[in-house]
Simulated scan of single mutants.
Amino acid sequence: LSGVFKGKLKAAAGFSNVKFAISGAAPINPDILSLFQDLGIPLYEGYGMTENTAGATLNYMGNNKIGSVGKAIPDTRVELAGDGEVLLKGDHVMKGYYRDEQATAKTIIDGWLHTGDVGKIDSDGYLSITGRKKEIYVSSAGKNIAPLVIEETMKSIPVISQCFLVGDARKYCSALFTLDVGAILRDKVGLEPNSIPKDPGEQLAVLKENGHELSDFTDSDDVKSEIQSEVNRLNGKFSNPEQLKTFSILPRDFTIDDGELTPTLKIRRKQINENWSDMIESMYSE
């Protein structure tokens, strides 16, 4: 892209004066990071948690490996436990939880903060987060599967809003997908992106105003075929036990009110398993 065109895109996105920006709290699609870098927008992924005063690792100019969360920041030590759990040590790590000695004893062991996250460190010192320790699935064949990476990869499909991986104690992996109503309004109905409301309820109302119900798409063979093609492509990023062998499209998105999302919009696995147990079992009934 030409410098002039990049400049216009940066201005349109509101990043003209940005020196650098940091993404954290949840994984960001590597394709988005690559796009921002190509546009000259310095967006870098980092990692940390409240218990270590937010920052522990960071990518930055001249030291950026997309797909990782960077190297340890100064005065921070990062190591992996035998089971892959990420351990942190430094003066910025908390002394403990307020008036909760039991939780502190489980989290701070020999001066190391046990994050509960599972990761890997490459030969250059870049840390990659592969999932949460308590969320690791074990297939019926004994294969450890980290759902978070697979879910975030499948959410790169434009029409997908949420992906919930199923596979713990199962013979193969499957997934529950929900559809992104905003993407439907943009790509299927043909509305201008700036005219599409952000609120999910308002999006459904606009969909109905344009003569459609969400079921027109969740029950559509064409939409399922489109998603299947993308799943087949993305499966190539994973080993055979991690690949999706089948999936189901839910009639609605996950919600906070139904207990499926936290207030910060992270999925609640137990509640989703309970709410959609019949659909999950149907993917393993044959």
Rank of each mutant, 00 (worst) to 15 (best):
residue 3 G to H: 13
residue 172 Y to L: 02
residue 52 N to L: 15
residue 253 D to M: 08
residue 249 I to E: 05
residue 258 D to A: 15
residue 86 V to T: 02
residue 95 K to R: 11
residue 274 E to H: 10
residue 40 G to N: 03
residue 238 F to T: 00
residue 204 L to V: 12
residue 175 A to W: 02
residue 266 K to N: 11
residue 126 Y to V: 04
residue 178 T to A: 10
residue 231 V to L: 05
residue 78 V to E: 11
residue 140 S to Y: 03
residue 149 V to M: 04
residue 178 T to R: 05
residue 77 R to L: 15
residue 173 C to S: 10
residue 254 F to T: 02
residue 70 G to F: 12
residue 143 K to T: 14
residue 185 L to D: 08
residue 9 L to F: 00
residue 162 Q to R: 12
residue 135 E to K: 06
residue 255 T to F: 04
residue 230 E to Q: 09
residue 21 A to N: 03
residue 142 G to T: 05
residue 223 V to A: 09
residue 186 R to D: 10
residue 148 L to D: 10
residue 246 T to D: 15
residue 41 I to W: 01
residue 13 A to W: 12
residue 232 N to E: 09
residue 251 P to F: 00
residue 208 K to I: 06
residue 276 W to M: 03
residue 128 S to Q: 09
residue 191 L to S: 09
residue 213 E to L: 14
residue 199 D to A: 15
residue 21 A to C: 10
residue 95 K to D: 13
residue 186 R to Q: 15
residue 138 V to Q: 12
residue 263 P to D: 09
residue 31 D to I: 07
residue 185 L to K: 12
residue 182 G to R: 07
residue 130 T to F: 08
residue 220 S to L: 12
residue 275 N to A: 15
residue 198 K to L: 12
residue 103 A to V: 08
residue 187 D to E: 15
residue 250 L to S: 07
residue 92 H to Q: 14
residue 168 D to Q: 07
residue 85 E to C: 04
residue 144 N to V: 01
residue 195 S to Y: 05
residue 259 G to S: 02
residue 81 A to H: 03
residue 172 Y to N: 07
residue 109 I to A: 00
residue 93 V to H: 11
residue 49 M to V: 03
residue 164 F to W: 03
residue 133 K to T: 10
residue 37 Q to C: 02
residue 136 I to T: 14
residue 34 S to C: 03
residue 166 V to Q: 05
residue 229 S to D: 14
residue 276 W to C: 01
residue 113 L to E: 02
residue 254 F to K: 02
residue 111 G to T: 04
